Simulated assay, not measured.
Amino acid sequence: MIIDLPKTTSSDVGKRLIDLREKHGAVTLGRVLTLALITDEDNAESAIASANHASHEHPCRIIAVIKGTSRGSARLDAQIRVGGDAGASEVIVLRTFGPLTAHPVSVVVPLLLPDAPLVAWWPAEAPEVPAEDPVGALAQRRITDAAACKRPSAALTDRAHGYRPGDTDLAWTRLTLWRALLAAALDQPPHEDVTSVRVVGGSENPSADLLAGWLSMTLRCPVTRTKATGVDGMLSVRLDRPSGPIVIERPDEDVAVLSTPDRVDRKVALPRRSAGECLAEELRRLDPDEVYGDVLLHGLELQRETGKTTRTKVKAKR
């Protein structure tokens, strides 16, 4: 069910939610948190769809603040989505216009669930320092996505300069399966030191940069970050050891090939993760992601100091 409320106020939206709850039996107590996403019109529906996907694991109130034109007088158009149009959540879409576009916190605060955590998410461009943003300052967790920015590499640098505990980025979350597979591979004998690493990914892929930083910080060996043109995702990781290399290569979007010395190559599931899957993972924890913070603040710099960056052209297989 979708209810449109043009030229309204946050107070009127709150009253309408109470009225819907009384008539249809939806209870606020079933929501475990408030997810506030701030974006523009171009990214709005895909972000709301991702939030709905995550809400099946984490029932929440989704407040989507969509910034319209800053010209003209202040205006708020709202939309309430419940039932089948809102996943396992209730979605409040707030479109701001005029001077109101610069003050999203003023329309968010009246609609926050009482005594529930707040998570702020910027699906595309984000503030330079999310923790100093008025909405971000209220949130326990602040989620950004460097890969969705116009300049992903520059966005990752901004994340490092403006990092505060509680920040995270979906470019890091997309690496969970890669990190787990690499850790499992290194757990198998022979237990030798890794002498060098090569990470290959798209030239503007921040996940590959973060993975190179994590491996440099964890393994304390030179890590080469190879930037491949013609592709946009993670392609491969090679760990060199005295007995031979461990290689994980993903030739398509779903299956990777794991190669280890003296063993038959094995195919393993390594799908590219959607924004909804990554968002659901991030909502499982409200404490700071210390590993992400260490990689962002120290791992990236360590990789640049002890490793190197190269470029290559790869024929896209996707």
Results as ranks from 00 to 15, higher is better:
residue 206 P to E: 07
residue 206 P to S: 05
residue 206 P to A: 05
residue 206 P to V: 03
residue 207 S to C: 03
residue 207 S to G: 11
residue 207 S to N: 09
residue 207 S to K: 06
residue 208 A to H: 02
residue 208 A to C: 00
residue 208 A to R: 03
residue 209 D to K: 09
residue 209 D to P: 01
residue 209 D to W: 09
residue 210 L to C: 04
residue 210 L to W: 02
residue 210 L to D: 09
residue 211 L to E: 02
residue 211 L to W: 01
residue 211 L to M: 09
residue 213 G to P: 04
residue 213 G to L: 06
residue 214 W to I: 05
residue 214 W to F: 13
residue 214 W to K: 08
residue 215 L to W: 01
residue 216 S to L: 09
residue 216 S to W: 10
residue 217 M to Q: 15
residue 217 M to I: 04
residue 218 T to M: 13
residue 218 T to I: 06
residue 219 L to C: 04
residue 219 L to H: 00
residue 220 R to Y: 04
residue 220 R to G: 08
residue 221 C to Q: 11
residue 221 C to W: 07
residue 221 C to L: 09
residue 221 C to R: 12
residue 222 P to L: 06
residue 222 P to C: 05
residue 222 P to H: 06
residue 223 V to I: 04
residue 224 T to L: 11
residue 225 R to Y: 01
residue 225 R to A: 05
residue 226 T to D: 13
residue 226 T to H: 05
residue 226 T to N: 10
residue 227 K to S: 12
residue 227 K to M: 14
residue 228 A to K: 10
residue 228 A to E: 05
residue 228 A to C: 11
residue 228 A to P: 04
residue 229 T to H: 15
residue 229 T to M: 14
residue 229 T to F: 07
residue 229 T to G: 12
residue 230 G to D: 13
residue 230 G to I: 11
residue 230 G to H: 09
residue 230 G to C: 13
residue 231 V to R: 15
residue 232 D to M: 12
residue 232 D to F: 07
residue 232 D to Y: 12
residue 233 G to K: 11
residue 233 G to W: 11
residue 233 G to F: 11
residue 234 M to R: 06
residue 235 L to C: 12
residue 236 S to E: 12
residue 237 V to G: 08
residue 238 R to Y: 01
residue 238 R to Q: 08
residue 238 R to V: 07
residue 238 R to C: 03
residue 239 L to K: 06
residue 239 L to D: 03
residue 240 D to Q: 15
residue 241 R to T: 01
residue 242 P to F: 03
residue 242 P to S: 08
residue 242 P to G: 06
residue 243 S to E: 08
residue 243 S to N: 11
residue 244 G to P: 01
residue 244 G to W: 00
residue 245 P to L: 06
residue 246 I to C: 05
residue 247 V to M: 07
residue 247 V to K: 11
residue 247 V to Q: 08
residue 248 I to C: 02
residue 248 I to E: 01
residue 248 I to M: 03
residue 249 E to S: 12
residue 249 E to N: 13
residue 250 R to E: 02
residue 251 P to D: 10
residue 252 D to H: 13
residue 253 E to A: 15
residue 254 D to Q: 13
residue 255 V to W: 14
residue 256 A to M: 06
residue 256 A to S: 08
residue 257 V to I: 15
residue 258 L to I: 12
residue 259 S to C: 07
residue 259 S to R: 14
residue 259 S to Y: 02
residue 259 S to H: 11
residue 260 T to M: 14
residue 260 T to F: 00
residue 261 P to M: 10
residue 261 P to D: 09
residue 261 P to L: 08
residue 262 D to K: 14
residue 262 D to F: 07
residue 262 D to C: 08
residue 262 D to Y: 07
residue 263 R to G: 05
residue 264 V to E: 15
residue 264 V to M: 10
residue 265 D to Y: 04
residue 266 R to H: 04
residue 266 R to A: 13
residue 267 K to R: 14
residue 267 K to F: 02
residue 267 K to Q: 15
residue 268 V to F: 00
residue 269 A to N: 13
residue 269 A to K: 14
residue 269 A to I: 14
residue 270 L to S: 04
residue 271 P to S: 09
residue 271 P to H: 13
residue 272 R to T: 15
residue 273 R to D: 11
residue 274 S to H: 06
residue 274 S to Y: 02
residue 274 S to V: 02
residue 274 S to K: 06
residue 275 A to K: 03
